[in-house]
Amino acid sequence: MDPVVVVHGGGASGITKERRECVRQGILSAATVGYNILKAGGSAVDAVEGAVVVLENDPEFNAGCGSVLNINGDIEMDASIMDGRDLSTGAVSAVRCIANPIKLARLVMEKTPHCFLTDRGAEKFAASMGVPQIPGEQLVTERSRKHLEKEKREKGAQKADCKKNMGTVGAVALDCKGNVAYATSTGGIINKMVGRVGDSPCVGSGGYADNNIGAVSTTGHGESILKVNLARLTLFHLEQGKSLEEAATLSLGYMKSRLRGLGGIILVDKAGGWVVKWTSTSMPWAAAKAGKLHSGIELGEVNTVDLL
Rank of each mutant, 00 (worst) to 15 (best):
Ser185His: 08
Ser80Gly: 07
Arg260Asn: 13
Ile37Asp: 00
Ala99Thr: 12
Asp2Ile: 15
Ala63Gly: 03
Met283Pro: 00
Gly90Phe: 08
Thr218Met: 05
Pro113Trp: 10
Arg258Pro: 03
Val140Cys: 01
Glu123Met: 09
Asp58Thr: 12
Leu299Arg: 11
Lys39Thr: 14
Thr279Trp: 05
Lys103Phe: 04
Lys111Gly: 03
Val7Trp: 07
Ser93Ile: 12
Gly261Trp: 03
Ile75Glu: 02
His221Gln: 12
Gly296Val: 15
Ile297His: 02
Val68Phe: 03
Ile75Gly: 00
Asp269Arg: 08
Asp306Phe: 14
Leu55Glu: 01
Lys292Val: 11
Val275Arg: 08
Ile225Trp: 05
Asn212Ala: 15
Lys146His: 10
Leu267Gly: 00
Gly121Ala: 10
Gly272Pro: 00
Lys124Asn: 07
Ala181Thr: 06
Ala105Tyr: 01
Asp86Ile: 11
Pro3Lys: 08
Leu28Thr: 02
Pro201Thr: 11
Thr218Trp: 04
Ile102Gly: 00
Glu246Cys: 05
Ala215Arg: 02
Glu151Ser: 13
Asn36Ala: 08
Cys65Val: 15
Ala122Gln: 01
Trp274Thr: 04
Gly261Phe: 04
Phe116Gly: 00
Asp83Val: 11
Thr219Arg: 02
Gly198Gln: 04
Ile225Val: 14
Lys292Asp: 00
Asn211Gly: 11
Gly272Ser: 08
Val6Met: 06
Leu267Tyr: 08
Val54Tyr: 05
Asn57Asp: 13
Leu293Cys: 09
Lys192Leu: 06
Leu244Gly: 02
Arg85Trp: 04
Arg145Tyr: 10
Met77Phe: 06
Thr32Phe: 08
Gly50Leu: 06
Lys164His: 02
Thr141Met: 08
Leu262Gln: 09
Thr89Tyr: 14
Gln240Met: 13
Leu69Ala: 05
Leu267His: 04
Leu244Trp: 03
Val276Leu: 06
Leu233Cys: 04
Asn212Arg: 15
Lys270Pro: 01
Met82His: 03
Arg258Val: 09
Ser93Phe: 09
Pro132Cys: 13
Ala157Ser: 15
Cys97Ser: 14
Asp306Leu: 15
Cys162Thr: 14
Asp269Asn: 13
Leu226Ser: 05
Lys277Tyr: 11
Gly222Pro: 01
Gly136Arg: 13
Leu104Gly: 00
Gly206Asp: 02
Ser13Cys: 13
Gly84Pro: 00
Gly198Thr: 10
Ile71Thr: 10
Lys17His: 12
Met166Glu: 00
Asn179Gln: 08
Val276Ile: 14
Thr112Asn: 04
Leu28Tyr: 02
Asn191Arg: 05
Gly10Ala: 09
Lys270Val: 03
Glu142Lys: 13
Lys155Gln: 12
Gly10Met: 07
Glu301Gly: 08
Val275Phe: 14
Ser205Val: 07
Lys270Gly: 01
Asp58Ile: 12
